Amino acid sequence: MIVESEGHFFQTTRGKIVESLGRTGGATAREIAAELGLTPNAVRQQLSALATESLVQTRPTRRGPTKPTLLYHLTQKAERLFPQRTDQLLHLVLNQIADDDGGERINDLFRSIGKRSAEKFRHRLEGKDYAGKVHELAAILREQGVIADVEQRADGKLVLREHNCPFAGSVRNHPEVCTLIHTVMDELLPGEQNHTTSFAKGNDVCTFELTADVAETAAEAVKMGRS
């Protein structure tokens, strides 16, 4: 989910390594290097710095007949770098709003936040085709500390996944919180969004199947052709 943040850690090389390890659960320096387009030595230097800060730790592993290699994975300290905004205060606030005004008031609140967030980032999606917009939205999410990736299926559908959630501890009791990301997508990605798996339903990943609005896509193509 999009949240406003002043931190830029996840835009740095170290941040991207931490994000990669958060997504895979553990990887070798060569595997991380291949994913990020870096040299293994450059990755090892960054991993060494992260280890000094107690953000990664290693254990030996054997991949095939070769000699053992080091597998890097995140420490609990590193896990806390990802957005964790589900503290007791948030629970109390949402519970109080629900008691006073009902769940629809929570919907209204997160719809408003979603619209504000969409306006903040709208300029970054301008001039891109639908797939480009989806990838840019995933990039924005990653900048906020959300582990997000995009897959394009053979049927043309785009699938956006969030592997962690800033509100994971709250959405099970208050699924209305998901209104935030739904609103952002409604505002920035005209078309159909199918929320197939969700932290709110107890899944360990949020999955969105996205299909572009044909009329909107055609109009955008004409607009881009004239520019």
Rank of each mutant, 00 (worst) to 15 (best):
T183S: 02
L141V: 06
E209F: 13
K67E: 09
S5N: 12
L125F: 02
S198I: 07
H163F: 14
D155H: 08
L92Q: 07
R111A: 12
T196C: 09
V184I: 08
D108V: 11
A168F: 07
L141P: 13
I17H: 00
P166Q: 04
M1N: 13
E151W: 02
T52K: 14
I17T: 03
P166W: 01
A148K: 04
G15M: 01
V56H: 12
R111E: 07
G132Q: 01
A51H: 11
P68E: 12
E119R: 13
T61C: 10
S5T: 14
H174Y: 07
A212R: 04
K157D: 12
E209P: 08
V18R: 03
N194V: 05
A118I: 01
R44D: 10
Q46E: 09
E220N: 06
L55Y: 00
L50Y: 02
I113G: 10
E126A: 15
G225Q: 08
K128C: 12
F110Y: 11
L90D: 00
N203W: 15
A212D: 03
V171K: 09
A118K: 02
A27H: 01
F82H: 03
A221R: 06
L137Q: 04
A200D: 09
A29V: 08
I2M: 15
Q144L: 13
L50N: 05
L71K: 11
I32H: 01
A215Q: 13
I106P: 03
K201W: 08
L188A: 00
V159I: 04
R23I: 00
A168M: 11
G64D: 05
T207E: 09
Q84K: 09
G156F: 11
K67R: 11
P166R: 04
R116K: 15
F208V: 03
G114W: 03
L55H: 03
G7N: 12
Q76T: 06
N203H: 15
R14V: 09
K120G: 05
H123R: 06
D149F: 01
N194W: 04
R161D: 01
A118W: 00
R124T: 02
D149N: 04
Y72I: 01
D100A: 11
T58E: 06
K115G: 02
A154Y: 05
G102I: 03
R59C: 08
N194P: 06
A139H: 11
G102H: 06
F167K: 08
G37C: 12
C165L: 10
A212W: 01
G103W: 10
H135E: 10
R161K: 06
P175Q: 03
F82Q: 04
L137V: 06
T52R: 13
A34K: 15
L89N: 01
A218S: 10
Q45R: 15
R172M: 02
T217M: 07
T196K: 11
A148M: 03
K120P: 02
M224T: 14
P65V: 10
A148S: 12
H182R: 15
T39M: 10
L36H: 00
H91S: 07
K77A: 05
A118H: 01
G145E: 01
R122V: 07
R116V: 11
